[in-house]
Design a protein around this nucleic acid. Structure first.
Lengths: 231, 231
DNA sequence: TCAATAGTGTCTGTAAGACAGTATTGT
DNA sequence: ACAATACTGTCTTACAGACACTATTGA
């Protein structure tokens, strides 16, 4: 019996975003307040249906733009994984493809846009909230992914603007791992990895203290050997 | 306007499997020959539609059982990622969730079962084949994932039966990374990682040479620091 | 006895972690 | 001057990589 165009179960496919940023030295995640059932009024990850003509990455990037009102978010966007338990949405069968997005400090969501219902919340608080659907699990997985990738990639630069100092990077690590790092050894490790950081020639003065060299991200994206998380 | 059960694009959702095993010291992947259009007669990864009542992991495990005719495959099964380009299937919009499965040496597919069209092929050959859909990309991603995870996990044990020797493990690494490792340093590294290997008390005699201690996988699943791939 | 494989010891170079010390700023 | 931050040097320890050496087997 040949298969036809209809002899398969129909699914809805969505993308959900875990957008991390640093605000005031603390890791924050973008949440929305749901306006409709199910879970009306509850916090959730931003996301939406994949459109017929776009691929998954494009859907994620479109949602990111819509929800943040920022056109070129920069930073980093990668697929995290898919979640498709039969009862994860009580209305219908939905498979969601979760994405992890990392962004430099973004403006507050703007009223009068799709992003009006969106808000930043420190991750420490978000993981204690009863998020809609299975979003608590997705957030937990995203956090672990981000923590793990800091160890062996230059992912921390995605949280910074194009030009940054070694201290900026260290603060990213400290915020995400939740414990302080030795500034001297950290500096030696990062500046000692060839191709990771490019000296911009500039320096930055912030209050007292010796001015810091300003770098840009270089072609090297992996740290070998990695920085270990355990202190 | 409230959303209804129908105001979303309908997708088909499938799972595709990249099943790796070791046969004769060589990494092999399970392929099927497609019987229907599109890509009829071409090799493809095994897979199928997700059923309405099962979650993604269950669908992957079901397909694995069906395609290999082996009930408890053991080994390892993890989600690799999702692929959903609008034109990846010419018939309809299909999102596939790819899984990576690692198994000890499995029997040849049995005629008269769903697995009849399935066959093992060395990965080195498979990556040169024009696989159906975007399966070449999925296979490449799976291979890279497996190679990377050997560095910092005990994933190699998934290719071995419950009891194995250090040499067995080393052969897994050599097959997947494609270059020899120093048996002495490898032995010291693995036996020196606490909780990774449990001495079964037995030894194994294979031809000439001192008998090898037989181990089982221990509770430790990560290697820290990792084994580096570069020779 | 010899070849083969398992496992140990030892050396060298690299780099992490700890921390003293120097450099350069704002106040 | 002083506090604060950026950076450099030095010491110790851990471990990878190289490889000589011992242990235990089949032929």
């Amino acid at each position: 019996m040949p298969s036809t165009q209809t002899d398969y179960p129909a699914f809805a496919v969505t993308v959900d975003l875990v957008v991390f940023t640093l605000r005031g030295g603390e890791l924050n995640v973008l949440l929305v307040t749901r306006g409709e059932a199910p879970f009306a009024g509850q916090p959730a990850l931003p996301g939406g249906f994949v459109q017929p003509s776009e691929n998954l990455d494009a859907a994620a990037r479109r949602e990111l733009t819509e929800e943040t009102s920022v056109h070129e978010v920069g930073g980093h966007l990668e697929q995290l994984g898919s979640y498709g338990d039969p009862d994860r949405d009580p209305r219908q069968r939905v498979v969601t493809v979760a994405y992890l997005a990392l962004a430099p400090d973004l403006p507050e969501p703007v009223a009068g846009t799709d992003a009006a219902a969106a808000f930043w919340l420190p991750v420490a608080k978000a993981i204690e909230l009863p998020l809609a659907f299975d979003h608590a699990q997705i957030l937990a997985d995203a956090l672990e992914r981000a923590r793990a990738k800091l160890e062996y990639t230059n992912l921390a630069t995605a949280f910074c603007p194009a030009e940054f100092t070694v201290s900026d990077l260290r603060e990213v690590y400290e915020a995400i791992w939740g414990h302080p790092l030795d500034p001297r050894n950290f500096h030696r490790k990062l500046t000692g990895t060839a191709g990771l950081l490019i000296d911009s020639g500039k320096v930055r003065r912030d209050g007292p203290g010796r001015p810091a060299t300003v770098f840009r991200a270089g072609p090297t994206t992996t740290l070998n050997p990695p920085i270990t998380r355990e202190p």
